[in-house]
Design a protein around this nucleic acid. Structure first.
Lengths: 170, 170
DNA sequence: TTGGAATGTCAACAAGGCTGACATAGCCTT
DNA sequence: AAGGCTATGTCAGCCTTGTTGACATTCCAA
């Protein structure tokens, strides 16, 4: 059955999951799942003047209030010009506010307003609902594996950042 | 509004993976992992006149040669105008060729040329290498869980299509 | 006081989505 | 044979979200 197999592991059952065919299936699963993953928030956003970029900004401002612009840039991995276009509309619409940094007054610390929290909640509720359904359907053991593989797939820099984030839960 | 835990499962160890906090971590893991997932092919593509859209087309033409345009549209979930822009450049550059359908001559069956196969291979080798490393690091059990959760996260229509695809290998 | 850091902003551009409208070829039913 | 539907292509125009480059402001720190 293993049609193609770039490694020299033919006959080794324990490495079956590393055949090119299995890897290809994993790649496609990632592609289709990511589409599902973003579908619900996208649906909410369409019609509003916002898009996925706004969602991402809201998400990360929500999760670490008081973050600086530069930090958000690093997390999102875009240019400041891109982020700024997004932030400007969020400021203008009163979803996000910036407070001047106390120690370094050049910094602008970002926070959601009540209105911003409301939209963030709507978006993340939708996304969490899908994630919850998937988790529930798959079971705790599968979820554990899911998280393990995803972490292994990140760029090392992002993995460091990710596993470092709010580690102890809370 | 239950900040941390929208369900009424406080104290239930087996459902800990369904807390909002866990779900949020899953969401972010998806975000960061997808970035890693696309990073290597993106790096290869940049500089060429191609982008992620070309990669996707090449991938699915490779995996089911002789597919029709309409079928590819359904898989990729884009408009024919978008796909056509991509396909045109791939035709022009001799990476993809279209043969007229035998039973229905309106259909154009898509195939990679040798040149197309070469680029597809370069891209997919890079992507598989990362996937393989992640799989290897995580182990077979985790991979099983990974796939289970991803499938549960797809839209039902896509899940049907995905699980139906080339099931027994081929 | 001066250099560099953090931030904002303007302008121009590209990729890759989208819609709408229209054209052609070929299949199918009447 | 005719008309209708299907598969595909194409033109034109628009949007979002990314990019570079250049430049201004404010403020920390040596």
């Amino acid at each position: 059955m293993a049609e193609k197999n770039s490694s020299t592991n033919a006959g080794n059952e324990s490495l079956l999951f590393l055949t090119d065919e299995q890897l290809r299936k994993g790649i496609e699963a990632m592609f289709f799942a990511y589409r599902g993953f973003t579908a619900d928030p996208d649906r909410i956003l369409e019609g509003m003047d916002y898009g996925r970029a706004h969602h991402r900004a809201l998400h990360f401002i929500h999760r670490t209030p008081g973050n600086t612009v530069g930090n958000l840039l690093a997390i999102l991995g875009v240019t400041k010009q891109s982020l700024n276009r997004v932030l400007r509309t969020l400021f203008d619409d009163g979803l996000v506010e910036a407070r001047t940094g106390k120690t370094d007054r050049r910094e602008r610390l970002l926070y959601l307003t009540e209105k911003g929290r409301a939209l963030e909640r709507a978006l993340s509720d939708a996304q969490r609902a899908r994630m919850r359904a998937a988790y529930r359907a798959a079971g705790p053991q599968a979820v554990q594996g899911f998280r393990t593989v995803l972490e292994a797939m990140m760029d090392p820099e992002m993995r460091r950042r990710f596993t470092g984030m709010a580690e102890g839960g809370q």
